[in-house]
Design a protein around this nucleic acid. Sequence first.
DNA 1: GTCACTGCAAAGGGTTTGCATCGGA
DNA 2: TCCGATGCAAACCCTTTGCAGTGAC
Lengths: 148, 148
Amino acid sequence: MGFNLVDMAMTELHANGGRMTNQRRLILETLSHYADHPTAEEIYERVRLKNRALNLSTVYRTLRWLEQRGLVNTRVFEDERCQERFDPIIKEDGMDHYHFRCSQCNQIIEFSTQYLENIKSQYCFEYGGLVQKASLILYGTCASCTSA
Amino acid sequence: MGFNLVDMAMTELHANGGRMTNQRRLILETLSHYADHPTAEEIYERVRLKNRALNLSTVYRTLRWLEQRGLVNTRVFEDERCQERFDPIIKEDGMDHYHFRCSQCNQIIEFSTQYLENIKSQYCFEYGGLVQKASLILYGTCASCTSA
DNA sequence: GTCACTGCAAAGGGTTTGCATCGGA
DNA sequence: TCCGATGCAAACCCTTTGCAGTGAC
């Protein structure tokens, strides 16, 4: 919980003459307290419970700002062509995480795997170049939907 | 080349009382002759060189129709949040393919790997459920952009 | 001749932007 | 005080939809 996303943002802000506003703090807190992968709209709704005056464009601007600084990740799931979902990047355990999405209940499950490293080096060996990042999403039916 | 996408579509059409129109044929041919992963707009422009009267909505309708029948795949790359790219599904070699995207020249390189199977079974072992599909995109710099 | 498909134009949904104002440092 | 951040409204972009007309079978 918390992932000290607020702290990391603070550091970034101070290093670049930015300002920690009430809106930003609320958005950051919301992002780090919810483990699901909310859309901009969902973040907006959640924050508005605490600050009615917030505007959607502020949410987007904050998310893009975080994205540029590598503090949040952005993802589009297949069944939501034009909608992005956001999640804070956890740097603590050092292990990247990937996603499983249940096409029945739309739940998102995070998982890790060591095999991505194999894939990356296999790719580089065969095609050359440099792999900086990997996005892997598994689609299927989750355990509880399968048994139901 | 060709992947007989037109033939496969024909079969589908005949099985469901559909009609092979000039527009559909041109869209199908364009899709299968170009190996890159075009957007709807790009397909539209290419087909319009041969048929000026074509409308973008026809392109979308055809693409969705193909998608529903499992004849094309749809993908959104990270640097193009709201734009889909389409590619015909090749069933010939039976091996799924994944994508590398160069963030410099935006080229898309397709590759295969046997490790995805490991990841799938690892996931199922740990979390249960059923994995039907995997989407993997590597982001980085391609060989020619690295050496340049 | 039927009915599926098309073109057109308008709407839709998510995201971005210009600008005047606000407020943190 | 100064300048970065916000709210608002309008714009943007990609995609979808309703409807009347067209053309494949």
